[in-house]
Design a protein around this nucleic acid. Structure first.
Lengths: 377, 377
DNA sequence: GAGAATAAGTTCAGAAAATAAACAAAGCAA
DNA sequence: TTGCTTTGTTTATTTTCTGAACTTATTCTC
């Protein structure tokens, strides 16, 4: 186990990137002397390493960064069948991969994980010794402690303390998290939002998910429901949504909704890309659908900016492109619906993510707990 | 100056309310022995005091709370002329009050404050010695460090480092803050949101302001613009707003907008209460206006809940009531536009605040900095 | 009502962590 | 070269925290 100063140091580095001892000491409010010792310990633990040497006036400074192989994290996605189980290093690289059959029984899941873990670890030397946590991503609401699944429609769960069950079977510190939030964390730790303190990730997929980072930490909300933008009302008295209300963003702008609208219009489009192609050829129905979806998503993001003033909006998507009509309309809708003073002030990045996002996201939850830890005062 | 452990202790108490030494030790992760010493020092400093004795099994525990007269904070409101200057104790009670002429010149303001401060302090013995900070509330955007006013239309300012100027003249640690955010902080420290970690305050007035607390700390957003719900688009292609876009919440639901709509309808109503009375008498125009305003505000708050899942929405208002048609429609609109699963899960409290809110809010900014401090890692 | 049980808070020696100040190291600039 | 500048280390010292035993104040049980 690490001391709190060591943890704090890792946290600072993971947020500010490689830094010299002197800079780290200043930003943590410690003396150079104290920093010297802390760094020495972490280097000998293999968690930290010296990288670049920066030359300036005076003695050059040596940058310190997390050692990619300083710690490993396991990640399981319960969103696919068979469920992937990956092993990630400190950089988010997947260094080993296994699958296991998906189950709805928490005890079976725990047993399967305990079963598969040794196989996973054997693929990479040192990983066993340095395995520092296990993360599980699932669709549903998760409690504040990332220990219990409050509710999952997909898995048919209610108040299932999965983390504890898995921890007991495997002996590894385990945390569970909602899928969108897990992806957000992996972007914060491994992806394009490393150095941003306050930002929101919008995951664009069959459904629309969202997660916020505030002060460098995942913000979950009081019931774990922060970021449920999919069900904010965008078209008052619009189409009924499966959630029970009407006009939710989910009914207009999710990939599923777009596909359904295309089908209803008699278009033979099976993907967003198809639809974009149709639209570029002048198909009025395709243009209408993309326009409607793009402005709905843009309006929701504009609200997000107005409400929370994040430093970055990161849109992750498995399918589709954001450089076509849909993306253009979306960006226009954002700019047109934020305070003119702020227009263009909030960068909106899109990022295509591959198939192992969920499992990697799950692993990042464990890494997040290792680095940032649970709520410190 | 306090040590970091002492500060942390004050922070915990200000957030969790009176607690025993043992409970405090546990919640801060310290030993009882360490706590014993820290508490002893703070009591002898006059910042902490023993209050209630709780009997249970075993030796009774003694609750510790902030000493109301342990520290005093000055607060200045630049929203009124003459500008009020108040002195608050640790409970938010105003123990002294002065006014000074309002100016737009930062140097004049600083000089006036330095001039008025001794008069203020002479009203309350001990206050001079225990004055622990000065806060200034103004209308506009304030930077992350609460030191500089980035932009204020009302004062005609752009990048005015007011806090530093005042600090230099008075020698007291000074912080400035946006009006709505200052009120939010005073609700967190002194008001109805003491024990809530994540909540939002909506200030309902001529304009609509909003501020978020996340993890017990004021969240300002990346450009200090978090909480600008007044200019989120509620009625797409609605009436033009002074901000440059259309259909902002501000154009439909602010007190000013409501009054203007009433005037445009030829109603002789000069207050929200008048309008409520008209509506209760069956006046169709009055009903229409209140309905429109209430559902707009409700929809915005519903979005807020969907986006951020706060533990509490606190609506502060100087004028008007929230138990009439306006409030009812507002609440219905909230319930109708959040995920049915969450309906009724987020308490919405309204609180009438008196004329000295801004000045007290300003003082609470200083208290917030004393207790919670600037961003700790 | 006496003693047992229970839990809060204190004391104190010793361990752990941080600091200050002096110093060594590694470059640049004249 | 000889300073100058800045990073990082060393060491003695101070500050802060812990562990374990102890005192204190109450309720519970017989």
């Amino acid at each position: 186990m690490l001391t709190s100063s060591q943890q704090q140091l890792l946290r600072v580095i993971s947020q500010s990137g490689p830094s010299s001892r002197t800079v780290l000491a200043a930003s943590m409010g410690l003396s150079k002397a104290a920093m010297s010792g802390i760094v020495r310990d972490l280097i000998s633990l293999g968690v930290l390493r010296e990288t670049e040497t920066i030359y300036g006036q005076g003695r050059p400074s040596i940058l310190l960064d997390l050692h990619p192989e300083g710690a490993f994290f396991g990640g399981v996605s319960l969103l696919e069948d068979p469920a992937p189980l990956v092993l990630c290093d400190f950089n988010g690289n997947i260094v080993a991969r296994q699958t296991m059959p998906l189950s709805r029984d928490p005890d079976v899941i725990a047993a399967m994980i305990a079963d598969t873990l040794p196989k996973l670890l054997s693929e990479c030397k040192d990983a066993g010794r340095k395995l520092s946590g296990l993360g599980i991503a699932l669709s549903g609401f998760v409690d504040e402690k990332q220990a219990s699944c409050v509710k999952s429609t997909l898995l048919g769960w209610q108040d299932v303390p999965l983390a504890g069950i898995v921890r007991q079977k495997t002996g590894i510190a385990t945390f569970i998290e909602n899928d969108a939030k897990a992806v957000a964390v992996s972007e914060k730790l491994f992806g394009g939002a490393r150095d941003v303190q306050n930002f929101s990730v919008v995951s664009f997929d069959d459904g629309i998910g969202c997660a916020h980072f505030v002060g460098g930490k995942l913000y979950r909300g009081n019931h774990g429901g922060a970021g449920e933008i999919a069900h904010c009302t965008i078209e008052p008295s619009g189409a009924p949504c499966r959630c029970g209300k009407r006009g939710c963003l989910d009914t207009v702008a999710s990939l599923k909704a777009i596909k359904e609208m295309a089908k209803a219009e008699g278009l033979a489009c099976h993907s967003l890309d198809d639809l974009e192609t149709e639209a570029s050829l002048g198909n009025a129905a395709a243009i209408r659908i993309l326009h409607r979806a793009g402005s709905a998503l843009g309006l929701a993001i504009a609200h997000l900016i107005q409400f929370n003033d994040p430093g970055l909006i990161l849109i992750t998507h498995v399918e589709g492109r954001f450089d076509g009509l849909f993306g253009t309309v979306m960006r226009q809708a954002v700019e047109g619906n934020v305070l003119p003073r702020y227009a263009g002030q909030t960068p909106i990045r899109t990022q295509r993510v591959d198939g192992d996002v969920w499992a990697r996201g799950a692993a990042s939850i464990a890494a997040h707990n290792f680095l940032i830890g649970p709520n410190p005062y």
